[in-house]
């Protein structure tokens, strides 16, 4: 469960990213967070992974109050939140297998265990036969699937997908959404930050609309309304 209580983020006097927002996201939910550029979506993501700290308010993930999280606890938080980005953020000099294994390696996972987990993750995203390829040898959709596999490496309770379909055509975008839905079916909370109207409307899941740093709409089985 993600609990956000009265969170405000002020960068400067003229730059207020979030204004006193409160929301509850239950474990296992699939929530789309929509809004125009500058609405506060990215700031919200940064607060969730403790890249930023709120100016005011409280954020809890499960029973963990991350509002004033200690620096040395941040890596452990990030292992519980899988991040997916529009630009995939893959390491070009590593193969598909190595990119996924990398997330486990930096966490100190044993090599034997990595050798077991990585093929399973590649199986989930349908890239078992591409494990030796480099990112530049893959299509955009395939690269995003590698990023998804990597985000699942720590078996996170939450997946935050920031515009995962932004660089993809309709078919690949649909494939990515299907994978996210599959992950959600396994019980993982999915937060989808997107501009893609078709994707949001097709999902029929909860939609939170941000505008000017405020939550202006929070609909169960909602639609893209802006």
């Amino acid at each position: 469960m993600i609990i956000v209580e009265g969170v405000t983020k002020v960068y400067s006097k003229n730059s207020v990213a979030l204004r006193d927002i409160s929301l509850h996201i239950n474990a296992g939910e699939f929530v789309s967070i929509i809004g125009q550029s500058g609405s506060g979506k990215t700031t919200f993501t940064k607060l969730l992974i403790a890249e930023e700290t709120p100016t005011k308010g409280k954020i809890k993930i499960g029973d963990w109050d991350i509002t004033n999280i200690k620096t040395d606890e941040i890596p452990y938080l990030r292992r519980q939140i899988g991040m997916i980005f529009q630009d995939y953020k893959l390491l070009p000099q590593k193969t598909v297998y190595e990119n996924v294994a990398f997330a486990l390696e930096v966490a100190g996972e044993k090599s034997k265990r990595i050798a077991q987990i990585v093929p399973q993750l590649l199986e989930i995203v349908g890239l078992s036969d591409r494990h030796n390829r480099y990112p530049q040898q893959l299509s955009g959709g395939e690269q995003q699937r590698v990023a998804i596999a990597r985000s699942l490496a720590h078996r996170p309770k939450i997946i935050v997908a920031d515009e995962p379909t932004g660089n993809l055509d309709t078919i690949n975008a649909e494939e990515i959404i299907q994978i996210l839905k599959k992950i959600n079916e396994f019980g993982t909370t999915v937060l989808l930050l997107t501009h893609n109207r078709e994707v949001v409307n097709a999902l029929h899941r909860r939609v939170i609309t941000l505008h000017g740093g405020n939550i202006v709409l929070d609909q169960e089985a909602g639609k893209y309304i802006l």
Partner: peptide
Amino acid sequence: KVEIGIKRLVGASNWFI
């Protein structure tokens, strides 16, 4: 820089980086 950013995102500790 990119690699360091990715290491941070996937939960690497500062000492590991």
